[in-house]
């Protein structure tokens, strides 16, 4: 595969995420990470993309009815798009607060639901947006620039 510097075209991958499947959870993020490694992306950037992809994937596994995650990779940026089919986030401002979580006791016992997922994603990316409404799905979009930071 070409190094990212020589990457002309967009490379896109999409993976389905199954709700409540804690055995496969993290596989989509792992595949995205492996792809970035194959493309020769710098390790610090890969780590940031891995954090964003993992946390986004886990949010869908833990909180949603299921969804999918996509990574769009160009020479300049890695865009991660994560969508689910509901039930939606009632209060996005709260969800973005460090330490705030609506995860159940069972989920917390597994070490999830620390209220760090969305803050971790936001810290990892140059661009961050989340759209959601009660009774609808959630759509998260982040962009990590190859040439900034790290």
């Amino acid at each position: 595969m070409p190094a990212v510097g020589g990457l002309d075209a967009l490379i896109s991958v999409t993976y389905d995420i199954v709700a409540n499947d804690f055995v496969r959870a993290g596989e989509a993020a792992s595949k995205i990470k492996r792809l970035l490694q194959q493309l020769g992306v710098e390790p610090g950037i890969i780590r940031r993309a891995a954090i964003a992809a993992y946390e986004a994937e886990m949010n869908v596994v833990i909180h949603s009815y299921g969804g999918r995650i996509a990574a769009n990779i160009t020479a300049d940026s890695i865009e991660i798009l994560c969508e689910d089919s509901g039930p939606g986030i009632p209060d996005i401002e709260k969800a973005l607060q460090e330490g705030y979580s609506t995860a159940s006791e069972d989920i917390r016992e597994m070490g999830f639901g620390a209220g760090m997922g969305l803050p971790n994603i936001r810290r990892s990316a140059e661009e961050f947006s989340i759209e959601s409404a009660c009774g609808q799905g959630t759509r998260l979009k982040v962009k990590i620039l190859h040439k900034v930071g790290d």
């Binding site: 804690f22 959870a25 993290g26 390790p43 946390e55 886990m58 597994m110 070490g111 999830f112 760090m116």
Partner: peptide, 22 residues
Amino acid sequence: LSDVMGKAAAKSIWVTNQIHPN
């Protein structure tokens, strides 16, 4: 897990009481 994901550096040895595949 999010704490480890966000903060543990690469090549670290990770000590935990969690036992599940994630």
